[in-house]
Design a protein around this nucleic acid. Sequence first.
RNA 1: GCGCCCGUAGCUCAGCUGGAUAGAGCACCAGACUACGAAUCUGGGGGUCGGGAGUUCGAAUCUUCCCGGGCGCGCCA
Length: 585
Amino acid sequence: MNIFRELLELVNSEIEQLSEAGDLPSGLDVTGVLVEPPRDPAHGDMATNAAMVLAKRAGKPPRDIAALLAERIAAQDGVASVDVAGPGFINMRLEAAYWHSALARITASGARYGAFDMGRGKKVNVEFVSANPTGPLHIGHGRGTVFGDVLAALLERAGYAVTREYYVNDAGAQVDALARSVYLRYLEALGRELGADAFEDGYPGDYLVPVGVALAQEHGDKFADAPESEWFETFRSFAVESMLSLIRDDLDALGVRHDLFSSEKKLVDDGQVQATFADLKARDLIYEGVLDAPKGKPPPEDWEPRPQHLFRATQFGDEVDRPLKKSDGSWTYFATDIAYHRDKVRRGFDDMIDVWGADHAGYVKRMKAAVSAVSGDTAALDVKLCQMVKLTEGGKPVTMSKRSGQFVTLRDVVDKVGKDVVRFIMLTRKNDAPLEFDMARALEQSKDNPVFYVQYAHARIRSVLRRAEAEMPEVLGSDLAGNADLSVLTDAAEIDLIKCLCGWPRAVDSAVLSHEPHRLAFYLQELAAAFHLLWNKGNEDHGLRFIIPEDSRVTAARLILIGAVTQVIALGLGIFAVQPVEEMR
RNA sequence: GCGCCCGUAGCUCAGCUGGAUAGAGCACCAGACUACGAAUCUGGGGGUCGGGAGUUCGAAUCUUCCCGGGCGCGCCA
């Protein structure tokens, strides 16, 4: 049930018939033909640009094509009137009966409303969070987490077979530093004094204290005076496991569950990086060369031009060729990441989405280049960048210092305002725009708070339905939808609300195509607004209230209308994994 | 220096694969409740869509150049 798609099919079939009748050339390409609501409602309910799009292809003036099409469209059921405007827009006005039938069909399609099998079971890999396992998640991670999880849910709803994946960077210098910090906490647990700057190159956060204690309990002072080589592996893997479990708890608190955690270290240990390297080398995509020093900023003190293994990223649209090995012989982050994406391709994903922080923007081109290279141009990677989250409390910035280890964690925020509020607010901005997250406003019960605003609409309707059940039980009979006469819905605000409900599949489609779940959050706010408006009309004109005790016919129709609003709000919140509320506390 | 992202009302931001006279909220002003929950709603003023050029029937949207802001630029991830 998607009226835009249906009307587009109608327009396309009329174009075809005009071709058959010889009024238009046959075999016309109709890509670009759209049916959409005109920006100005005064122009009608729906408009199509068909005549303008086809003008050049058909070799006819747009107004002439429009006139031909308009005549045919006007003869269709449900179409009240059609006119041609401007350069060749065909504006349609639809009969009230059309909207009534649309409402009935929305209700009938239930939880499937807006679902369209765009994906046809195609596998998609959504990699998100992928924070280093060196500490708890912070609020910025939370944004990518919610974004990735909701995008995944959205794609699932559109018929894709989605895998939610977390790439664990457990092989680099970061986790080495983590291991050393944990070792210090271990010494501390054994009663040793730590120097003031002991954690200078490590992780000073308190969250490592229990990790040190646990190791002290398990191993006693066995490693206290041992050389690093003896304890390092033990401490590193224990520390990573502990941090991963911390992160899993954080994700759990947000209601996020990944299907797969992929370990960078395992990738390296299994020889996959080596294999990828050999593979690319065999295809002459790796060569030995010397890179210029980075321009525009003073080169690092220890800069020295040296020949190294370079990936021919420039062959795939990147600016420079990228190094794969560090001077100590170990792999660069990029090298392991190529292997990782190659692994995804080999697991059958030719559609991949990576959710990154905006500070990684500079890596997008090389990663796309790498995916082209390892897949032989058969796989596509879309990288979604999430901008910063500015955490505020009553408009004042909440200071965060990772250096001191004292920062507000994602968990702190979730515990304070609840996971549903966090999830919704994270989607009230486009992913590549900075987001201000105000903790005070997140808890506020006013229309400034978008979560509340949408939930309030849902709760109000549930309240009406409860009341109707108590006062007019006969109306809420078993076959309410089947028997109701929707033609009594005649007020402009009622029809507007139905029109808004009809926009849901369109919102879903556009969110799926653009990989932008925030569009659903905006849609839900619009729907809530259309509902609140109708409600208030009932305050001014009691004849427009939903429950009319002396008229069960009208009441039934209106309950179906607002029932459909809760249906769509619940569907939207469902994709967000936010629970619609029955009442506001 | 180069690359990516951004620039829309006083503020915060939408604007769907290019569509008609560019929208919403906040703030400001003026209104609507003996309540199906006013935690809401209605109306009003407010704009060179950063600037120029181009593509076309048509540009906030695409291309290009400039201005301004953010991020990044071998051996961090």
